[in-house]
C-alpha cells in the first residue's frame, strides 16, 4: 500500500501555492493529510504534484472579525478544539470537534482539509453548512467566497475551483444568547457517523429565538440544512420540534450501505436533530445570558 510517485513542493506563501496549482493540472493541496494520505496509499488519489501548505504562516491563524471567526485552512483540529475564541464564538464547532477522529488524527488534521475533502459524514462540514460558513478559496490573485450551504455537491465533491487553494473558513459568530447541540451515531464511537445532526439557536435579549439552524450529515451525499424556520413562531416545545424536523427531513435524500439502511439514516438523523434542537434550547433556558 504505497502511493504513486509524485513531486512535492513546500510553498511559503499563498501566492506561491496558487502558482504551483496553476502550473500543474494534476496538483493537489496537502494540508494535514489525514484524509488524503490514506487515499494516496491506496492509490485512489494519484496526483503528480503535492503542494504542502503547512509552511504558509497565514493559514494557521484564527482571526475574529465583527461578524465571523475566520479559521485559516491549516489550523489543526486539536488547536481549534482548544481555541478560546472558537469555544466562545463558535460553540457548535467546539462541540463537533470532540467527535472528529481521535486525538492522534486531530493533532494533524485541519479544519480546511476536512472542508475541502467533503466527506459526507464529516462533522466540520456539517457545522459549516448548519451555520452557513463562508469558505474562501484563492485562485491566482483572486479570492472566491462560497456559502457552505451551496459548497458541497456530492461525496468528496464540491464547487471549489480546481486550481484554487482553500484559505480560510469563516464561521458566523453566535449571538450573545445562543444554544447549541451536536450529536452523531456511529457503530464505534469514533467511526464515520451513520447519522449526525447539529443545531444552533440564536436568541434575542428577550429570550426569543432569532434564528434557528439545524443541519444533518452522514445520511446523504453531503451535509444539508433542514428548513425549520417554522419553529420561530413556536415556543420551541418538544411537539413542535419533533413535527417540524419530521416534515423537514422528508426532503433529504439518504443513502444505503452495508452499515446502515437509508431508512435508518433518516430516522436516526431526525432523532438526533430533535435532540440537538432540544439541547440548544435547554442550554439557554437553563443558562444565564452571557
Amino acid at each position: 500500500m504505497k502511493p504513486v510517485n509524485f513531486d512535492y513542493e513546500r510553498p511559503r506563501t499563498i501566492d506561491e501555492a496558487c502558482e504551483l496549482l496553476a502550473s500543474n493540472s494534476n496538483a493537489r493541496i496537502l494540508a494535514g493529510g489525514q484524509s488524503l494520505i490514506p487515499m494516496l496509499s491506496m492509490r485512489l488519489s494519484r496526483p503528480s504534484l503535492l503542494i504542502d501548505i503547512a509552511h504558509i504562516k497565514d493559514l494557521s491563524e484564527i482571526v475574529a472579525t465583527d461578524t465571523h471567526i475566520e479559521i485559516g485552512a491549516m489550523v489543526r483540529q486539536a488547536v481549534a478544539k482548544n481555541a478560546k475564541m472558537i469555544q466562545e464564538y463558535i460553540p457548535l464547532l467546539s462541540k463537533a470537534l470532540h467527535h472528529v477522529g481521535h486525538p492522534p488524527t486531530r493533532a494533524r488534521g485541519t479544519i480546511g482539509g476536512s472542508i475541502a475533502h467533503a466527506d459526507p459524514s464529516a462533522e466540520i462540514a456539517l457545522v459549516a453548512v448548519t451555520l452557513g460558513a463562508e469558505i474562501t478559496y484563492r485562485v491566482g490573485d483572486d479570492d472566491h467566497m462560497f456559502d457552505a450551504t451551496e459548497f458541497f455537491i456530492g461525496p468528496m465533491l464540491t464547487v471549489a475551483p480546481p486550481d484554487g487553494c482553500l484559505v480560510k473558513v469563516g464561521f458566523p459568530k453566535t449571538s450573545k444568547i445562543c444554544g447549541t447541540g451536536f450529536y452523531e451515531v456511529a457503530p464505534r464511537r469514533s467511526d464515520y457517523a451513520l447519522a449526525s445532526a447539529a443545531a444552533q439557536i440564536n436568541f434575542d435579549s428577550k429570550g426569543a429565538a432569532k434564528t434557528i439552524r439545524v443541519g444533518v450529515g452522514s445520511i446523504g451525499d453531503f451535509p444539508e440544512r433542514l428548513d425549520v424556520d417554522h419553529l420561530l413562531n413556536t415556543d420551541l416545545n418538544d411537539e413542535s420540534i419533533i413535527a417540524t424536523v419530521k416534515t423537514a427531513i422528508t426532503e433529504i435524500e439518504t443513502v444505503d450501505d452495508l452499515h446502515a439502511s437509508a431508512e435508518y439514516r433518516k430516522r436516526v438523523a431526525a432523532h438526533l436533530a430533535v435532540k440537538a434542537l432540544q439541547t440548544a434550547r435547554d442550554e439557554v433556558r437553563e443558562a444565564p445570558a452571557k
Binding site: Y8, I37, P104, T105, R108
Partner: peptide, 19 residues
C-alpha cells in the same frame, strides 16, 4: 504506527517523511 511528533501522538502512516 503511532509516534510522537513535536510531542503529539500521531499516526506515522498518515504523515509523509517530507512533512
Amino acid at each position: 504506527c503511532t509516534v510522537l511528533v513535536e510531542g503529539n501522538a500521531i499516526r506515522s502512516c498518515l504523515v509523509l517523511a517530507v512533512q
